[in-house]
Amino acid sequence: MVWQERVYLDYAATTPVDERVIKAILPYFSPNFGNPSSVHFEGQQAEAALEEARERIAQALGAKPREIIFTSGGTESDNLAVRGLALAERKRRGATRILITPVEHHAVSATAHQLEDVYGFKVEYIPVDSHGQVDPDDLRALINADTALVSVIYANNEIGTINPIAEIAKICCEKNVPFHTDAVQAVAHLSLDVESLGVTALSLGAHKFYGPKGVGALYLRRGTSIVPTQTGGAQENGLRAGTENIPLIVGMAEALSLVLEDLDRESERLRTLRDRLIEGVLESIPRARLTGHPTQRLPNHASFAFEHVDANLLLMHLDHEGFACSSGSACKTGNPEPSEVLQAIGLTPQWAMGGLRVTLGRGTSQDHIERFLEVLPQVVEKCRVINRVS
């Protein structure tokens, strides 16, 4: 096969690490390799780097440094928030209901269901509309004194829809119920001022905003009760045991600072490319539909469903043509299943099996979009022919 170049269109899955971030990280492998819990000079150097990173991330979020807990990534942050807050609220006031949406990342939904299966909580769903968005009035009708926790994703990883987080947080505050949001996909593109949002807890992961994999953070509002889910040492104010990964934490702080410096300009550039992509796909491919909200969506995020197309096959053919994308379908080899998110927004299996997520980033150009629009209609038609034959 001959490619002009490979085109990466899967920035929602992960992003390349910024070279400036790599430069910031390297000294903390060596020579500044100390353990921040050690009292000697090397340990003090590491602790200073840790606390400087904490202050930088807190400032970026409009938080206090003590409200930042470092974790191994967005998944652990979600786990700590959902499990830790729910257990604390049951201990504090006997609350046993957990409210989530049917379009949460599995780091939230699987944790909630484990709490139901193992710990006796009851999980209930806040409905979403055909765009995957929550109506705050629906939450208002569900929340009550027995609600231990509400968790609603800020911006959906699969379909890009943005939720009215500040309105949801206000309802939770009125009812004195902790509110967590998974903001992993939102960090590189949306405002995350925690005071304006009014959230109790907010999760982020560095590799979604040009930082390293394997590191994340949880914002936890000061004074909030939470049960640690990783125990041992007294790191992170006793809320997350284990020696902190100083190189990656330093890298996350640098990456977040850099992405926020250019947030407005880059979001506008990506929004223009995204809109061209959406327009081109819907004009050129029959039986195609946009999934997620048409306007209240991430500026870099375009997602589609194609009737009678197998998403795995579509991705394979796109990869063969030199394009890296993702599917909206949670397909397993030999056992394809329709996407839970696409079914939750009302798509039938013949549509939900054909999900495609195209996410843009710093390396995406107008030429990449035009080349993709040349190739995609042919690939979709090829997949439909194969589907008819089989």
Rank of each mutant, 00 (worst) to 15 (best):
R362E: 06
E337Y: 06
V341R: 01
E374R: 08
Q378F: 09
G346P: 06
G363R: 12
E340S: 05
R371N: 09
C383M: 12
R357W: 11
L347W: 09
Q366S: 10
Q378H: 08
M353Y: 07
V358G: 07
P336T: 01
T348L: 15
I369R: 09
V380E: 06
L360M: 15
V379T: 10
R362L: 05
T364I: 10
V375T: 07
V380F: 12
K382A: 10
I386F: 08
V375L: 15
M353T: 07
S339A: 07
A352C: 04
Q378M: 11
Q343F: 01
A352V: 04
Q343W: 01
L360S: 02
Q350Y: 14
I345L: 00
M353R: 14
M353H: 11
V358P: 06
M353K: 06
N387Q: 15
L356Y: 01
H368K: 14
V379M: 02
R384L: 08
G355C: 05
D367P: 09
V379Q: 05
G363K: 12
Q350M: 15
E374Q: 06
L360N: 03
Q343D: 02
R362I: 04
W351Q: 09
Q378V: 05
Q350C: 14
M353C: 03
Q343P: 10
L373C: 03
T364D: 07
A344G: 01
L373T: 06
K382L: 00
W351T: 04
L360K: 10
E370K: 11
L347T: 12
N387W: 11
L376H: 00
